[in-house]
């Protein structure tokens, strides 16, 4: 299992401070949800863990190695990343797209091996996209495309998976399916970090939540500790119904605090 440490991480984009002193240790085998309002710095934190965003101050380490000093290719084998926004520039066939996930494991000028093919099939089965194998990815529905891109991220088979809003554009059935899948990955020893907006699903599936507010950690811990009325009022500016439905936690936003 891979351990990630974030040490007093500051990031400024231009003159604006986006992250202002984040500290967290992320252990393997957990599904960790990063939640917070728009602009809280969730995606920037995800990108910083990957080394895609340089720290202004502080650092991120993976198994005690500074991300800023690790070569891109090595980070790519350690962390798989599902970026926000379903970017897809060319109309690739689904299988070819999922195969991109094997790039970190390929030696220069080599071809995809049988082991890679097995990993691609496994990822497509997990994300329930095997039947779409020969379809053109850009012609799929938003939900299908989201699952294909998730399969692409799973095909890396890295010990850490960072998914930035993996539930966007999925229907409720597929949202539950994707959360189940992320949970299974975590149970299998993968450190799963998911940026989420749906608080009920975050409460129900995550082992730990990190609530960000204006670039700082507003709360960090198990879901019951983080998702309480006071935190929701303070960070999101809302009043919400907090309770349980059939034994599962649920959060229903009711009013905006004026």
């Amino acid at each position: 299992m891979v351990a990630i440490a974030i040490e007093s991480l500051h990031i400024s984009l231009g003159k604006q401070a986006v992250l202002r002193g984040i500290d967290a240790h992320l252990e393997g085998g957990m599904l960790i949800g990063i939640i917070g309002p728009n602009g809280a710095g969730k995606s920037t934190l995800a990108r910083a863990i990957l080394g895609l965003q340089k720290a202004t101050k502080g650092r991120v380490t993976i198994d005690e190695a500074d991300v800023a000093a690790l070569p891109h290719a090595q980070i790519a084998r350690l962390i798989s990343y599902l970026p926000q926004g379903q970017t897809l520039h060319w109309p690739l066939v689904v299988e070819r797209l999922v195969a991109l996930g094997r790039i970190p494991h390929l030696a220069p000028f080599s071809q995809i091996s049988d082991a890679d093919r097995i990993a691609i099939d496994r990822a497509m089965t997990l994300a329930d996209v095997s039947t779409l194998r020969d379809r053109t990815a850009t012609e799929l529905s938003g939900g299908e495309r989201a699952r294909v891109l998730l399969a692409r991220a799973l095909a890396v088979e890295a010990p850490v998976l960072i998914a930035d809003e993996p539930l966007a554009s999925l229907d409720p059935g597929h949202q539950l399916e994707v959360m189940d899948l992320l949970k299974d990955q975590a149970a299998g020893g993968v450190t799963v970090i998911a940026v989420l907006h749906d608080l009920t699903l975050a409460a129900r599936f995550c082992d730990r939540l990190i609530l960000l507010d204006k670039g700082q950690v507003a709360a960090d811990g198990d879901t019951a500790k983080v998702l309480n009325a006071e935190n929701l009022a303070r960070v999101y500016g809302i009043r919400a119904w907090l309770g349980a439905v059939e034994g599962s936690p649920a959060v229903v936003p009711l009013f905006r605090n004026v």
Partner: peptide, 15 residues
């Protein structure tokens, strides 16, 4: 090929 996923996507694949 990796750039099909955008710049962040490609960099995260080690490019």
């Amino acid at each position: 090929d990796a750039l099909t996923l955008g710049e962040d996507g490609a960099k995260a694949l080690g490019i």
